[in-house]
Amino acid sequence: MLLNASGCLDALTAPDVARQLDAFVTKTVTPLPRPGNPPVRIAETEAGMLNSIGLANPGRDRFLAETLPALRELGLPLWVSVGGFSAREYAETCERLDEVTIELNLSCPNVDEAPESAGEIVAACRAATGLPLYAKLSPAAWDIAEVARAVEAAGADGLSLVNTMRGLALDERTLWPVLATATGGYSGPALRPIALAAVYACRRATALPIVGMGGVTTGRDALELVAAGASAVALGTVLFSDPDAPGRIRAELETELELLGLDSLAAAEGLAHAGGVGLRSRPVAGPAPM
């Protein structure tokens, strides 16, 4: 299953891109409208990019009245990314949603966080809704497996791993921060080994299904997240450079599975924990990796 990472696609502006996905994840919705951060909001780095969009969104009321009905017309399963500045704010939005999967954005590096812990926020939302509840976690946690166990105990139905990490870029000539907010969320290829480690650790720590994301650019990248323990994969930064990425990555994934002699993506799930792919199923014995 292929999704977009929250905030990396607007399905209403680019419906053709959204329709290449199995489900669409909205930009994070907060109780009140947010204009977002001042420009400059985007900076490229050597192996990724920084953003400081700052959860720009029309607010809960307008989202429910205008955005969500328009999104439903696409006919895609919807995931709504929910944000807030207290557990109560998260729960109030969850309470007003229906017929969607909820992803709790517990880890935006561009705004101040709620005072409660991830587990407390999930518990408040669990009490407010019976909808599927995914917790999106930060890879910056010292022990992400511990956070995963806490949200599982609080009633989460799944994990979204990972959000961006805080980063800084300085202007080539002036050495002044490129982003107006100085720091921003770091995403792209550099995040991939970090995401892989987070998925690997949380797969061992919990029984929750995992949506893996972080720097996926190719079918091989998606396959590795699945092997580490994800059952679905979300695309983020790659959508910015290649709007055809979902179709391309799906095709590449098929090829990768075939090369490894696996008959489905499900067969690859968690292989990194189970001895990997047996040598006999490799069609060609190549040279040992350097």
Partner: peptide, 20 residues
């Protein structure tokens, strides 16, 4: 500055008629 060019990244927000 923009990352995508097709409305996905919200990086190129500018204030137009009081709205971003």
């Amino acid at each position: 500055p923009m990352a995508c060019g097709y409305g996905a990244c919200y990086g190129c927000a500018v204030e137009i008629d009081g709205e971003w």
